[in-house]
């Protein structure tokens, strides 16, 4: 009986040891952290723990090309996490980790919740310190992908409302000026009339005096 248990235990240990992440083929790389598997051609999968520059973002093209080159048409081992995000392995090496280490991706902001947080953030720190990959970009071009996505929906300072406000203020100013000028003109006319009548009065009184 004991012998049977020992055999079963050894067998289960053997089976666990032989269990390997299932291998898949990559159909299409969308950008540095998104891809489509041949087995599920209608689904776009994100890579776990990392955020690579968007395809149109500075270093986005390089990140995409690097990811493509890492598995170069060979089959990759894939582990799905609970969010249905992937961790890719080629020859036992984590591709997600390599992307961060080589400066082709940022470690995700919420990675602290995951088991690999330390190694990913440490790899990012090293890449940044060494100016590797995207960390070699000029300051103005080194934008985190989540900021990039946010900026893409940011609104321009509204020229329209600004213009309208400006125009409204200008109209008000113009109206006030017009009123002021009209008042001044009226005053001037009144003064002129007054001067004229004064002159007339003077002339009349002079005439009366001469009489």
């Amino acid at each position: 009986m004991i012998f049977r248990y020992i055999v079963l235990l050894l067998l289960s240990i053997f089976l666990v040891a032989c269990t390997k992440a299932p291998a898949y083929k990559i159909k299409h790389v969308v950008d540095g952290d998104t891809l489509v598997l041949t087995e599920f051609p209608d689904v776009r999968y994100d890579l776990a723990y990392i955020d690579a520059p968007e395809r149109e973002q500075p270093y986005g093209r390089e990140a995409r090309a690097y990811l493509k080159q890492l598995f170069a048409d060979q089959q990759v081992d894939i582990v799905f996490n609970v969010n249905q995000e992937l961790e890719l392995f080629v020859d036992g090496q984590s591709i997600n980790y390599l992307m961060v280490k080589q400066g082709y991706a940022w470690a995700q902001l919420n990675i602290a919740d995951s088991i690999d947080s330390l190694s990913y953030t440490e790899a990012q720190k090293q890449a940044a310190n060494n100016g590797t990959g995207l960390w070699s970009l000029e300051h103005g071009l080194m934008i985190a992908p989540w900021q990039w996505r946010e900026q893409s929906t940011e609104r321009a300072p509204s020229m329209n409302s600004h213009d309208r406000l400006k125009r409204q203020r200008e109209l008000e100013r113009k109206k006030a000026l017009e009123q002021q000028y009209a008042r001044m003109e009226r005053q001037r006319e009144q003064r002129a009339r007054y001067e004229q009548s004064k002159k007339l009065n003077q002339q009349v009184s002079e005439k009366e005096l001469t009489k």
Binding site: E138, G140, L141, W148, Q151, S152, E154
Partner: peptide, 21 residues
């Protein structure tokens, strides 16, 4: 023409001066 940004201020600066900073 790749303006390398999607921030309005940076885009205007880049396209009309030739430099993103």
């Amino acid at each position: 023409i790749d303006a390398q940004t999607n921030s309005h201020n940076a885009g205007v600066t880049h396209n009309f001066s030739g430099r993103i900073s």
